[in-house]
């Protein structure tokens, strides 16, 4: 799979994977890779025990949340602990512990006679909250079904021209039972979308090439490569064909079954998207 050498966002360390090329190289699954590759530090710390994190969360909410906010992002009486340099430098409670045990009475931070385990649990919860903030691939998308299903239906049957290729009693029947709302919206915008949809992903092979030689002979098949100098495809019998592209060389036609969906992106308003989604989720 070809990935751009992009260091996005100082550099958001993700390589944007070319959707179209992902489609080209049909052998590599998942077809549309998640947008962001995991951030890879050299030595990833082991994830803390989830039970400890859970306990830490509970203790924090009851003992600390009043001042630091139940999500530790700070409140009226205590600072944000997810942005605290002390917490960021802490390992396993070694720096947080003394603050909890001794407090900073002169500054409004009371002391708590907590056990080593309780401190460790709180530290684990704070660190896992920071890790979750850092890892934007893990952010949970909330309720996206806010549109008007009636307006969505009208758009589907009218201005959207969706019915020229789809039918809610045919290919899209029961589609809402197949996908959760986020995946369904993703499928509608980009049918080769495979983000978090389970294994095996629903693969949509959208492209085919037809190469016609000056002699009139022509070859059609699955794309293997297309650039300024070469075109290659695999035909229905599995045979691989490759051609040099020159001025008087073969004519290349690219057929993209999903072109209509790509073009939709330049026409859909956000309201259309929300309304269509609200309509599609009713197709149980």
């Amino acid at each position: 799979m070809r990935a751009r050498h992009l260091d996005v966002s100082h550099e958001v360390s993700h390589k944007v994977i070319r959707a179209a090329v992902a489609l080209l190289v049909t052998a590599c699954a998942p077809l549309a890779a998640p947008l962001a590759a995991p951030l890879a530090a050299q030595t990833p710390p082991a994830a803390p025990d989830p039970a400890s994190v859970e306990r830490g969360h509970a203790t924090f909410t009851s003992a600390c949340g009043f001042c630091h906010g139940s999500n530790a992002k700070g409140g009226e009486k205590g600072p944000d602990l997810l942005r605290s340099v002390l917490v960021l430098h802490d390992e396993g409670g070694e720096s947080i512990g003394p603050v909890i045990l001794h407090g900073r009475p002169d500054k409004g931070m009371p002391a708590f006679p907590f056990s080593a385990q309780q401190i460790k649990d709180i530290a684990n919860w704070l660190h896992s909250s920071i890790a979750a903030t850092k890892d934007r691939d893990s952010y949970k998308i909330l309720n996206i079904v806010t549109g008007d299903p009636k307006a969505g239906e009208a758009y589907f049957n009218g201005a959207g021209h969706c019915t020229s290729c789809h039918s809610v009693t045919g290919d899209l029947k029961g589609i809402a039972a197949k996908y959760d709302a986020v995946t369904l919206q993703g499928k509608m915008l980009r049918p080769d979308f495979s983000w978090k949809e389970g294994n095996p992903p629903h693969q949509v092979i959208a492209l085919s090439f037809t190469v016609t030689l000056p002699s009139g002979q022509s070859f059609t098949g699955e794309p293997m490569n297309l650039d300024d100098f070469n075109v290659a495809l695999r035909d229905a019998n599995g045979a691989y064909h490759s051609f040099a592209r020159t001025k008087d060389g073969p004519r290349v036609e690219v057929n993209n079954r999903l072109q209509a969906h790509l073009d939709l992106l330049t026409r859909l308003s956000d309201a259309d998207i929300h309304n269509l989604t609200a309509y599609l989720v009713t197709l149980k």
Partner: peptide
């Protein structure tokens, strides 16, 4: 007071 990225992105077309 959101933190970090605060929102998720999904690529939908190229």
């Amino acid at each position: 007071h959101p933190e970090g990225w605060g929102a998720a992105e999904r690529g939908v077309g190229d």
